[in-house]
Simulated assay, not measured.
Amino acid sequence: MDMPNYSPSITTMIRMDHTHVMAAFHRYHAATSWWRKRAIVELACTALEIHAQLEEEIFYPALAGVLHSDDTLEKSKPEHDEMRADIARLRAMHPRDAAFDARFMKLMREVMHHVAEEETMLLPAAERALAAELSALGARMTRRRLQLVAQKRPAAIAANTVGTFPFASLAMATLGAVAIARCLRPARVRRGRLG
């Protein structure tokens, strides 16, 4: 299988990551139960860590090869480092701690600023300068993402996804169960008992 033909472009994948994290951010409220806050924060933080590593390993080096001394690109890695420090501080806290909400709100503001710069400056620049490579870079990002997710405890990611998006998770589980049930029915039943 030639993965580049089936993979979204790297810029599409980056935008999808941004959308996923923003959706998690919108689920967080000060009045949310502490266990759900923990799920939302863990899901967002894990997604951000994976996203940052993928950008640093694949996207930024490719972009640096065609954009020389770009200010937005040069400050992206230090912004990722600050984000990682905020994530470590959050993980050292309990959601019932008085400063937890403020710490997560700070992370959200920093990430939203970073996302805005990437989506308005870096991604359009990449789409112009790396047009012929975007799909191949997307395939590399897909392969590496699978490796990183496997290292980050997929069961915990799944549990945090359910805690963050309970209704969407229920809908997906229901659709999956229906699809499996349809696949497991005997062939005669699937063909409408033609025989």
Rank of each mutant, 00 (worst) to 15 (best):
S69W: 03
S69Y: 09
H68E: 12
D71P: 08
L43P: 05
A24W: 02
E42I: 03
L43K: 07
R36H: 11
A44K: 12
A24I: 02
A62H: 05
E56L: 00
E57M: 08
F25N: 07
K75R: 15
G65Q: 01
K77S: 12
E49M: 10
E74I: 00
K77T: 15
R27A: 13
W35S: 15
A62G: 09
S69G: 03
S33M: 08
T32A: 12
L43N: 10
E56A: 12
S33I: 07
K37T: 04
C45L: 01
D81Y: 01
K37H: 10
K77Y: 03
P61V: 04
A39W: 02
H80N: 07
E55D: 09
M83T: 15
L48W: 05
E55A: 03
K75E: 14
R27C: 14
L54H: 04
A47Q: 13
I87A: 01
E57I: 03
I50E: 02
A44Q: 10
V66K: 13
L67E: 08
W35K: 10
E49H: 04
F59R: 04
K75S: 12
I58A: 05
E79H: 05
D86G: 07
V66I: 11
I87M: 08
T46G: 08
I50V: 12
A31E: 13
Y60A: 09
Y28S: 01
R36D: 09
A31T: 14
H26K: 15
